[in-house]
Simulated scan of single mutants.
Amino acid sequence: MVIDGVEVPEDGAPPVDHVGELIQRVAQGDQGAFARLYDMLSPRAFGLILRVLVDRSQSEEVLQEVFLEVWQSAERFAPNRGQGRSWVLTIAHRRAVDRVRSAQSSADRDVRIGFRDLDVAHDGVAEQVELRIEGEKVTTALATLPEAQREALTLAYYGGYSQSEIAALVGAPLGTIKTRMRDGLSRLRTEMGVTS
């Protein structure tokens, strides 16, 4: 069975990371490998970016930036540190979040200038500030999790993978993935001060 470029053998042997192999070939300047990598992962990466940005045209721009970064930094991929698919999707998620932060920063600057010029209060500012603070809390809380828990939660919530797909992709038993996600969510609640 092959899921997003990771071949999971039926006999219990370790998964084969075809995406990682393509990335290593891209690092050597192999344009054909890059084309195959793009064909294999661009739909998943685009879906992830679109979920973060919502705007289709911005998502298309960010997708281009992601694969440009993959082309330029493929030699930094370390197969011993994770799956190739995870590496590409992490770049996609980071780029999408950077775009949101940039847009938020620009909007905040426009709001500040508008308030200074108009000297009027605006109810939406409090809401924007609360959303921004909440987003920063989630990002900070995620960063405190162990890598295995963070990876499982990121693949589930940002990548849209099921628990069984995550298990196959990272080469861990399904029960282990369920435990990682349960423990990770519990730690996130604690970090964010959620009591219910």
Rank of each mutant, 00 (worst) to 15 (best):
G124F: 00
G124I: 08
V125A: 00
V125L: 07
A126K: 07
A126Y: 10
A126C: 03
A126M: 15
E127C: 09
E127R: 11
Q128Y: 13
Q128A: 14
V129K: 10
V129S: 09
V129T: 06
E130F: 04
E130R: 12
L131A: 14
L131M: 05
R132E: 10
R132W: 14
R132H: 10
I133Q: 07
I133S: 03
G135E: 08
G135R: 15
E136I: 12
E136H: 13
K137W: 11
K137V: 13
K137I: 13
T139E: 13
T140W: 11
T140V: 15
T140A: 15
T140S: 15
T140D: 14
A141P: 10
A141Y: 10
A141H: 08
L142P: 01
L142N: 10
T144W: 12
T144I: 02
T144D: 06
T144G: 07
E147F: 05
A148V: 00
Q149R: 09
R150L: 06
R150F: 11
A152T: 04
L153F: 01
L155C: 12
A156W: 03
A156V: 10
G159S: 09
G160W: 08
G160A: 02
G160L: 08
Y161Q: 09
S162H: 00
Q163T: 08
A167N: 00
A168H: 07
L169H: 02
L169K: 01
V170K: 03
V170D: 00
G171N: 04
G171Q: 00
G171L: 01
G171V: 04
A172K: 01
A172H: 07
A172C: 11
A172F: 05
P173K: 09
G175R: 07
G175Q: 02
T176C: 05
T176P: 03
T176H: 05
I177K: 03
I177S: 02
I177D: 01
K178W: 13
K178F: 07
T179S: 12
T179W: 06
M181C: 01
M181S: 06
M181N: 06
R182I: 04
D183I: 01
D183G: 08
G184W: 00
G184M: 06
L185W: 07
L185E: 08
S186I: 08
R187Y: 05
L188Y: 15
R189P: 01
E191S: 14
E191M: 03
E191A: 14
E191N: 15
G193D: 08
G193K: 09
